[in-house]
């Protein structure tokens, strides 16, 4: 047989009857053929083996990771060949936040120097680059901003398992370097020396004099509480919201008509869900109403508006903040 016509590939792993290799061609399921596999240097030997393809998936450099069954009637020793990944993947659960994420926040299922994987509530677009924030709860809630690129998406039930890589980080390089250190040291890197608790410091600062008023004394319910029904109009989009449990702070992410994000912090507020269900909804403003019910957040449609309610505690536990959306349709993102 003309050996040089055999398909060629690079061995990744051979274990028992299962073999994984990188090939430059695609093969249909159950395709059977003999393949010549190279091994990583300094080993110059070639491994010739008959295989039956089970499945393939794309890999970098126009190659395909091919998983197959060894059909050669011979017992091979277990072999490790070329590594599939540049970096070792570790099972790490970190909170991930971004206004560009469906649901605003997610948890990583694994993480490496090269990227991470997370289950999302909706589908992103492959190739999109989005700024993200990793939160390190074990380090007092410190956070690191990074850039992530969507590399692949797999539907899993009602969710989407999404693989992200870390592209060239640009302005986020410092954060990426820190993350690498953090991974290299098994989580021993000191965060405080490098970063401020950044995630929610993006909003323009409000003068201390407007905030340092302290909690008021207990006051009886006043008539003015019941009469409160105001709307603060503005034009923009609702991008998401989050309730930081423990911090008693609601963060609402809005986008103005010029495409600028505004992170609004409402200290002393509470919500029920720490995420946003919709993305980029046209808003008319926020409303302030009296609300005596227990802490809850809900949405209801009133004619052409959707109202998203947050208990805005304001130390008095009485005021409800309504984010008033115009219509319910999702806005198409450019």
């Amino acid at each position: 047989m003309l050996g040089f016509l055999k398909p060629k590939g690079e061995l990744v792993e051979l274990k028992g009857r299962q073999i994984v290799f990188l090939a430059t061609k695609t093969f249909p399921r159950d395709a059977q053929f003999a393949i010549k596999l190279s091994l990583p240097p300094p080993n110059k030997q070639k491994l010739e083996v008959d295989v039956r393809v089970l499945r393939q998936r794309p890999a970098p450099d126009n190659k395909y990771v091919t998983i197959a069954v060894v059909e050669t009637p011979k017992d091979y020793p277990d072999l490790h060949g070329f590594p599939l990944r540049d970096y070792r993947r570790e099972s790490r659960r970190l909170t991930l936040k971004s206004g560009d994420l469906p649901g605003y926040r997610a948890i990583t299922t694994d993480l490496s120097h090269g990227g991470f994987k997370a289950e999302l509530e909706a589908e992103l677009v492959e190739g999109d680059r989005i700024p993200i924030t990793f939160e390190f709860e074990q380090l007092g809630g410190f956070s690191v901003d990074l850039l992530a690129e969507v590399r692949w998406i797999q539907k899993k039930g009602v969710r989407y398992v999404t693989g992200f890589s870390f592209p060239d980080q640009g302005q986020y390089q410092e954060g990426y370097q820190w993350l690498c250190d953090w991974l290299n040291t098994g989580g021993e890197t000191e965060v405080k020396k490098l970063f401020k608790p950044a995630a929610f410091q993006k909003a323009p600062p409000i003068p201390e004099s407007l905030l340092e008023k302290g909690p008021p004394p207990e006051e009886p319910l006043q008539e003015l509480d019941k009469a409160l029904e105001l709307r603060i109009p503005f034009k923009g989009f609702l991008r998401g919201w989050a309730w930081e449990q423990g911090d008693d702070m609601v963060v609402v992410v809005l986008e103005d008509d010029d495409g600028n994000d505004h992170w609004l912090e409402f200290p002393g507020c509470r919500g029920l869900h720490a995420r946003c269900r919709d993305r980029k909804i046209r808003l008319q403003g926020v409303g302030l109403v009296f609300q005596s019910e227990m802490i809850k957040e809900y949405s209801r449609t009133v004619t052409m508006e959707s109202l998203y309610h947050f208990q805005f505690l304001d130390d008095y536990l009485r005021v409800c903040l309504e984010v008033v959306a115009a219509g319910c349709r999702e806005q198409k993102r450019d």
């Binding site: 909003a203 923009g236 809005l254 609004l264 912090e265 926020v286």
Partner: peptide, 10 residues
């Protein structure tokens, strides 16, 4: 900026 004035007004 919207992000500045809205919390103050709320």
């Amino acid at each position: 900026r919207l992000g500045s004035y809205l919390p103050v007004l709320v």
